[in-house]
Design a protein around this nucleic acid. Structure first.
Length: 258
DNA sequence: CCGGATGTTCACCT
DNA sequence: GAGGTGAACATCCG
């Protein structure tokens, strides 16, 4: 479920963790810890206090006075704070939080906890993640930075927008929705876009994020209900095209997305 | 039963 | 270097 909209919901839902002191860490899954061992995380974080929670793209960062703990949610990771899932949209028909899917947890002095529950194990936890590996956050990228991105590569526009090193936060659903709104085919080479097309995509970006955040997440886009073999363009009724672009399943309107 | 899925990384091609 | 493909992770859904 998570793209940057969902991670932002998680971040806000976790705001009351600020000020809490970490009493204990549970890291039962070594595979979930990236570039760090469980004893190392425990040694560094136990006893420290969470001072702030940031988000860059799809990465959530818990800040203490000396460390930063990066939380990635993959496709199925969920955050459970004090026993309650921080979630507004159901990804499956049932919201099941099997305890065996708890991959990482912080227990706080005086009670309460933050638990990452992730059925598919696609997320992970990293100590002091290298933020230089992430491009500017999609919610605040400037037009100049966005235009520079498009000019530097000939990959399909969708592949560029999915590349977190270039622009952080957009996932498969949001990119399809964005390009549908902007009227650009996802297969277009980034550096062959006309200037007005680059403007159009950038201008559609923040309003789309604000709108879908207000509606409840990445799966509330206008195109989303039509992502199927029978899907038609909500704007003009044409049958949607389907294919693989940037390695991901992609739906777009062959009529108004050129 | 089978294929695909809101993500990321890496190996392996061309 | 640049770009593309497929596999891996594990579970659920149509």
């Amino acid at each position: 479920m998570p793209e940057l909209l969902e991670i932002e919901m998680y971040r806000r839902g976790a705001a009351n963790l600020v000020g809490r002191r970490i009493a204990e860490i549970e890291a039962p899954d070594d595979w979930y810890l990236k570039h760090v061992s469980a004893p190392e995380v425990e040694a560094v974080l136990t006893g420290s206090t969470i001072e702030a929670i940031d988000r860059i793209g799809k990465l959530m960062v818990l800040r203490t006075d000396t460390e930063r703990l990066g939380l990635r949610y993959g496709m199925t990771g969920r955050l459970v704070v004090d026993g309650a899932p921080v979630i507004d949209v159901l990804e499956y028909s049932a919201l099941r939080l099997d305890p065996s899917w708890n991959r990482f947890a912080l227990r706080f002095t005086g009670g309460g906890s933050a638990v990452m529950n992730d059925p598919r194990r696609l997320g992970g936890v990293e100590l002091n993640p290298d933020l230089t590996k992430l491009g500017p956050d999609a919610w605040s990228i400037s037009y100049e930075a966005f235009r520079a991105l498009t000019e530097r590569t000939g990959v399909a526009l969708k592949a560029l927008l999915l590349n977190q090193k270039r622009i952080a936060g957009l996932g498969n659903l949001l990119v399809d929705e964005l390009l549908w709104r902007a009227g650009i085919a996802p297969t277009r080479s980034a550096n062959e876009l006309r200037s007005d097309e680059v403007v159009g995509v950038h201008e559609a970006l923040v309003p789309m994020l604000n709108e879908l955040f207000g509606r409840g997440g990445s799966n509330t886009g206008d195109l989303f209900p039509e992502r199927s073999a029978e899907g038609v363009c909500p704007r003009d009724g044409h049958s949607l095209r389907h294919g693989t672009v940037g390695g991901r399943s992609t739906w777009w309107c062959p009529h108004h997305q050129q």
